[in-house]
Amino acid sequence: MTRLNILWALLLGLGLWQALVILTGAPHFILPSPWRVAQAAWNSRVVIAENAWVTTLEVLLGLVLGTLLGAATAIHLAMSKTAERLMLPILVFTQAVPVFALAPVLTLWFGYGIGSKIVMAVLIIYFPVTSAFHDGLTRVDRGALDLAKSMGATKANIMRHIQIPHALPALGTGLKLAAVYAPIGAVIGEWVGASKGLGYLMLLANGRAKIDLMFASLITLACLTVVLHWAVGLLAKRLNTYALGVAPQTPAARAGRA
């Protein structure tokens, strides 16, 4: 059902695109037809794949590092009232600085390689992950905390056995946001200065008036983001299922319930 819907949406999109090309009569170096883009994608498949690999690596590393850093910060903030008081305003303030504006500086500091793009992706997802996870950690039922205290629990153990498992769904929400943002960070980093990656390829193709290749790169990037979003969505679902203690719905369980 959903697969059929996706197929229809895809066909509709392609149809609209083709219609736009015919109706406007735009030349192929302004708006190439879907077929032309498909041809360009096929002809340049090796180049696209190589650059897509670099971008994927940047995004994945950025996502992992940013999540680790964000989760660690959130735990630290939730455990220390002082840290929370001092750091939360700073964190919010840093969000007022558009991360994109930092791209040139980051390129200067971390070079033209994938380093600066990873840092860019980390910076852009750090805040959503931190704030979502911190929210989850601090929104634990007061009764559960009272119970833990009456049992003589230590702060660290409350964090480990109650707060973190409880906050996993919130972390999942943060990760879903991060999955959307991380590719943006990486591509902007590539635009500012790079010798590899889909963002770099887009600029290069644009400069050489190979608009069909540019579109092919853009579509590849969109596909990567969709796959990433889907994978992270699955992960978030699993975190949710775990934290709520709901057994995965197997056909046998469904039959048993009915």
Binding site: T154, N157, I162, P165, H166, L244
Partner: peptide, 19 residues
């Protein structure tokens, strides 16, 4: 106040885990 992610047994012994 049972932790939804823990089995009944694990919930029973959560005091020890927390200490």
């Amino acid at each position: 106040l049972l932790m939804p992610w823990l089995s009944v047994t694990e919930n029973t012994v959560i005091g020890a885990r927390l200490r």
